[in-house]
Design a binder for these strands. Structure first.
Lengths: 146, 146
DNA sequence: TTGATATAATTTGACATTAAATCATATCAC
DNA sequence: GTGATATGATTTAATGTCAAATTATATCAA
């Protein structure tokens, strides 16, 4: 027989497991960032530029789900390390386009490959069909609020 | 036929969906913390004290997976708000035991109930058996590294 | 007892994060 | 053109985060 308490218990339990799995997996995947001394946000910015080409800061912020004020600082730090450069748009001077430097491109190519390999290794504890199923359930869950 | 690329694609895809689901659900659950103006860490500390009783800072750090240096600051801010108080252990003066104040206990009881209700609401987009399945897959995934 | 070692908490320095305010530039309505 | 409004980037203030160094206290070994 199903009671409200059963449902509550099940929901809380599932939520906890989802969070633990996500933290545990990201924790291990992010180890690939420690050697090159990249923060997660820095990696996110480099990866966005690597896969999408030069972007303005607002678009980068939207891509990695951070505030624009934050991006300013993250770009500052990447620029200090010579991994990206800023270029003011001559058409609309409100925009600044961020480009990977050669060093930045080389670094992110290497690091992204490492991260990718590490994700594949993590997912290896599930069979193909389990992965499909997990993906399906996660999608259903994430869609809820929009 | 299965190729390495299929596997890689599937793994990356599953990983992305897992991360998006986790972020999306936590994002919505954590809205319950914005009205009482609690940060996630502050909530974690109050919740630990609420469910486990008074704890020393080292134990709190272990419980919410943060560094002890971090806990010092979070407790400072909670103390300023009158939600917790520090008490130096008279047996072993290296320890400081953190207690909820009456105000802190009242606040966390209310906020925890809200968070709990919001988790249940989130999980409502999955059936009971889907929740069981998701929990099972997450557990299997999280266990990988220890 | 004294010295080495261990442990809990704090401090420091660097970076991240957001919200809100501000600055510079662009665009739209008139 | 001028003024109102919108938009991209920056700054600021408050908090969080870690790693590493430091401080205070305790314990163990000789």
């Amino acid at each position: 027989m199903k009671t409200p308490n059963d449902s509550t218990y099940r929901a809380l339990n599932t939520y906890t497991k989802l969070m633990r799995a996500a933290e545990s997996v990201t924790g291990r995947v992010h180890r690939a960032l420690s050697a090159p001394k990249l923060t997660i946000s820095q990696f996110g910015v480099l990866e966005a530029l690597y896969h999408k080409g030069p972007l303005c800061q607002k678009d980068i912020a939207a891509k990695i789900l951070k505030s624009t004020g934050n991006i300013t600082l993250v770009i500052d730090n990447l620029e200090k390390q010579g991994l990206v450069r800023r270029e003011r748009d001559s058409e609309d001077r409100r925009y600044i386009t961020i480009h990977l430097t050669d060093a930045g491109a080389a670094l992110i190519a290497k690091v992204f490959a490492d991260v990718e390999a590490s994700i594949v290794a993590e997912m290896d504890s599930l069979t193909d069909s389990e992965q499909e199923l997990l993906g399906h359930l996660c999608k259903k869950l994430g869609l809820k609020g929009g």
